[in-house]
Design a protein around this nucleic acid. Structure first.
Lengths: 202, 202
DNA sequence: CGCATTTCGGATCGATCGATGCAGAAACGG
DNA sequence: CCGTTTCTGCATCGATCGATCCGAAATGCG
């Protein structure tokens, strides 16, 4: 059985879809869903609107795929953080990853999952709901990790994992908002360090 | 000298400018600057585009005035919080006000200063910068309040007021992001309470 | 080669964007 | 009544929005 990499008949694609998606991701990240017009997107991707629609479907689908790429790329620190052996290690890695990703020297400031489509008009409601689900997924995974920490005895048995997860995500989103406003990496890492000094807060 | 309330000659305005601005504020709050089109704005305001331009200038000016109204209305809890006698009281009132304002049962969820224009295209950069300055102003006032608390002996002399202000604003913005995603008032107030239990975090 | 298949560039679609022009209506001071 | 001033309704502006159509170009296959 082959890997399915058999080249299909017809004119081959003249661009790298992965690289084009990466360029689109950067545009969405910097300008948000509504602020990223098809013209700015395709211009950054180096392809025509025709090619974009053929390869990705439409703007909302492109955003969805860019968000997937964001999750597996810049936002992959979440997966790694959840594998830390202790709850304190999880939070430390999570906040450090948030600070680093939202303040990359070469790249957009902030978090795509926050500023991509926080409040929108009717036509962009799909993208907004997509990000609501994305943030909710991150929250749920952190909560489940804390539940496990309670079961392991890593966190006191009276702790509320859901509350703790809301607290940590609130800090992360707050860091992302400040990063979007231009607050520097060191200053935000200090915030993370301060919060970690009183962990857990209950 | 009169108060300047002398009615000017000419046809009087056929609508209440304050109420129209309030309606516009709600639209900006719910949909963000880019998501709020002139059509949706003027429809909610109950006036024509001509009247809107005559009374408020243009879309960006309308947004600026709506933000002023937001500051003096829904966001006035900041001023009241800063007058609390202790730093703990300030933070308690600040976070409680944030939770209440971002989760009003009848009204948009979230914070206009956060979701109004967090990431935008070129044409909305003015609104984005306006909100960056708005958030920075709030941060600075909180920092100055903490500096005073240190001088008063209300906070330990080794505390960093700037760091503390960043921490509190991060929590507030994080609460606002979660509120925009539909997280309920009680759950967010629990987050605020948890953070207050370990105040100050340093 | 011819043929089927796919992608390409360029033109263009109707709708909507923010913003204005203009004529007339409605208020004022005299 | 007048002239002046301001506001309003309607039409419309050029630009841009997301999305498509179409003919030419580029491949694999026979």
């Amino acid at each position: 059985m082959e890997t399915g990499q058999r080249r299909p008949t017809g004119r081959p694609r003249g661009f790298d879809a992965d690289e084009a998606l990466e360029r689109a991701l950067l545009v969405f990240w910097e300008r948000g869903y509504e602020g990223a017009s098809l013209a700015t997107l395709t211009d950054a991707m180096g392809i025509s609107t025709t090619s974009m629609y053929a390869a990705f479907g439409n703007k909302e689908e492109l955003f969805r795929k860019a968000l997937e790429r964001y999750t597996e790329g810049p936002s992959a620190y979440l997966d790694r953080a959840l594998e830390e052996p202790t709850a304190l290690g999880v939070v430390t890695a999570l906040l450090a990853g948030t600070v680093r990703t939202t303040t990359r020297p070469a790249g957009p400031n902030g978090c795509l999952g926050v500023q991509g489509a926080l409040a929108t008009g009717d036509s962009s409601r799909g993208a907004r709901d997509l990000l609501v689900a994305w943030r909710d997924s991150g929250y749920s995974r952190i909560r489940e990790r804390f539940e496990r920490a309670v079961d392991d005895g890593d966190l006191p048995p009276e702790t509320d994992p859901a509350l703790l997860a809301r607290y940590v995500t609130a800090l992360a989103y707050g860091i992302a908002v400040q990063a979007a406003g231009g607050v520097g990496r060191d200053e935000l890492q200090d915030v993370a360090d301060a919060a970690l000094r009183t962990w857990p807060p209950c």
